[in-house]
């Protein structure tokens, strides 16, 4: 029984079965919701940001194994980053951090990048309103 779960790396399986930072956040500084249930995946990303640094990230995701694993991984990658650093994270970088995704699943990692963009622009919008 080799290759038991077909296309996924051990790291994807680990993040899928034991997702990091899964859950909600009260009054997040940045909130992004992206995707569409018609396409099969929706991600909600919550960010806690102080002095331009991401202190905490949480997610909720409706989606396949790849969508859940990339959601989990992107929250890990975001923590401790500045906003400028976070903006540079691409879906390829998230996929690479998971030791790769099968080609047909690369579109699932786009969800993580879009979620990140949406949460940061929500943060910047809120910040702009305050100052």
């Amino acid at each position: 029984m080799t290759n038991k779960l077909g296309p996924y790396s051990d790291k994807v399986m680990d993040h899928f079965m034991n997702p990091r930072n899964m859950g909600e956040m009260e009054d997040p500084d940045g909130l992004g919701e992206v995707g569409n249930p018609v396409c099969g995946d929706v991600m909600r990303l919550y960010l806690r940001i102080k002095d331009g640094i991401i202190l905490d990230a949480k997610f909720k995701t409706f989606g396949c194994g790849a969508a859940i694993a990339t959601s989990s991984m992107v929250t890990e990658m975001l923590k401790g980053k500045t906003i400028e650093e976070a903006k540079k994270i691409t879906n390829q970088a998230v996929a690479e951090a998971l030791d790769g995704l099968p080609p047909v699943k690369m579109h699932c990692s786009v969800l993580a990048e879009e979620g990140l963009e949406a949460a940061i622009s929500d943060y910047e919008r809120k910040k702009g309103q305050i100052s």
């Binding site: 038991k4 779960l5 899928f16 079965m17 099969g40 995946d41 409706f62 989606g63 396949c64 194994g65 969508a67 859940i68």
Partner: peptide, 14 residues
């Protein structure tokens, strides 16, 4: 309701 089939299928496969 509310969950995606492939993630269910993979959990069952495991």
């Amino acid at each position: 309701y509310g969950i995606e089939g492939e993630s269910l299928l993979m959990n069952l496969d495991l």
